[in-house]
């Protein structure tokens, strides 16, 4: 019984939150990795692209809520998501036309594009704060839990409760669907293959029937969609605050780099590695230890390796270790 309680506590406080956080990071990192693989630069504006997509979704959600449209137990934001994606696509394509295309035509070095993307980041950052304000925004509605802790306890008779929030379940399911569609698209369709070809060998792709501008546009379309989905899921799960999205940039980049920049599979693996590390290292293990250890060995402290304040430091450390010992990442990045 104690053992079961320990497992339930572990699942409740570590596995489930890390799964949903990992999915969000994976979706974010996929966007970063696609831009890196195909457009060949590290897009620092990705966090704020996510924030923008999420913001449009929130505005549409509020509109829907005010006229009484809803999805029952599911959050209304799901209905608003397509509009958010459209808004984000528009922003990203306009940015590409106004900013990135110029540098592409100049054949600018990736370093220059990285700095350019930083400028874009600050502008998007300002734009989001200007429109929706810098504060926390709530937009989730519908049922809060799939299983609440109390229901679980009464169902199983265990001391420990297991709660699965709707947003968490939704995050994982959406991430699985999105990733499946993305991989099908990249591996099975002509457009996806063109993108992979362009990423693999740009010179050769240019000398085949591949239209580079089209590849660029499709890349941005997909990146905007991924960013919006990731942003909305994160906002539903935690809360929406523009500054948090800026901070997310670090774990997202860490995920993409750990997995291998340019490798979609790596982005997903990296997302989960970063999420599980963050959660396990900052979790107070006392609760689990209490069930597993004999009473005499019961720990006095929280058995927490790092305070949650140091969450971001975990990504940093993993990033450093990977860059030192395997700079290409787990899946040997650089090509799709």
């Amino acid at each position: 019984m104690d053992f079961l309680n320990a497992i339930v506590a572990l699942t409740n406080y570590v596995v489930i939150p890390a799964m949903s956080y990992g999915s969000q990071l994976a979706l974010g990192a996929l966007g970063v990795t696609l831009v890196y693989g195909i457009l060949r630069f590290s897009n620092f504006a990705h966090g704020d692209t996510m924030a923008f997509g999420a913001m449009v979704t929130i505005l549409v959600t509020w509109l829907m809520q005010s006229v009484g449209i809803n999805l029952g137990p599911l959050p209304t934001a799901l209905l608003a998501l397509p509009f958010g994606i459209l808004g984000c696509v528009a922003l990203v394509l306009v940015t590409d036309r106004l900013v990135y295309r110029f540098y592409r035509e100049q054949k600018a070095k990736p370093v220059i594009l990285v700095i350019v993307s930083m400028g874009v980041m600050f502008i998007m950052n300002g734009l989001v704060r200007f429109i929706i304000g810098p504060d926390d925004q709530r937009f989730s509605d519908g049922a809060r839990f799939i299983i609440s802790a109390r229901d679980f306890k009464s169902m199983t008779g265990l001391n420990e409760g297991l709660a699965i929030k709707t947003s968490q379940g939704l995050t994982v399911v959406t991430a699985v669907v999105v990733v499946a569609v993305l991989f099908w698209f990249l591996n099975r369709t002509r457009t996806g293959k063109s993108m992979r070809a362009y990423s693999d060998n740009e010179d050769l792709a240019l000398l085949s029937g591949i239209n580079p501008e089209r590849v660029v546009v499709y890349t941005w379309l997909i990146v905007a969609a991924l960013a919006t989905v990731a942003g909305v899921l994160y906002g539903l799960d935690k809360s929406f605050k523009p500054f948090t999205y800026f901070q997310l940039l670090l774990p997202i980049f860490a995920s993409a780099i750990v997995g291998g920049l340019g490798s979609p599979l790596g982005a997903i693996a990296g997302g989960f590695i970063i999420a599980f590390s963050e959660v396990t290292i900052t979790y107070a293990w006392k609760k689990v230890a209490v069930y597993l250890l004999p009473e005499r060995f019961e720990p006095d402290g929280l058995v927490q390796l790092l305070s949650t304040d140091y969450k971001l430091a975990v990504s940093f450390v993993i990033l450093l270790i990977v860059l030192l010992f395997r700079p290409t990442g787990i899946f040997r990045g650089k090509a799709l």
Binding site: R190, K193, S194, D200, A205, S208, G209
Partner: peptide, 24 residues
């Protein structure tokens, strides 16, 4: 030059432009 992660056949199939699979 080659598309290293694709098969030889796929490499050749990439060449012709204007394929209908290129539009979303």
């Amino acid at each position: 030059h080659e598309f290293s992660s694709m098969s030889c056949r796929e490499n050749l199939m990439m060449v012709p432009g204007g394929q209908s699979g290129e539009t979303l």
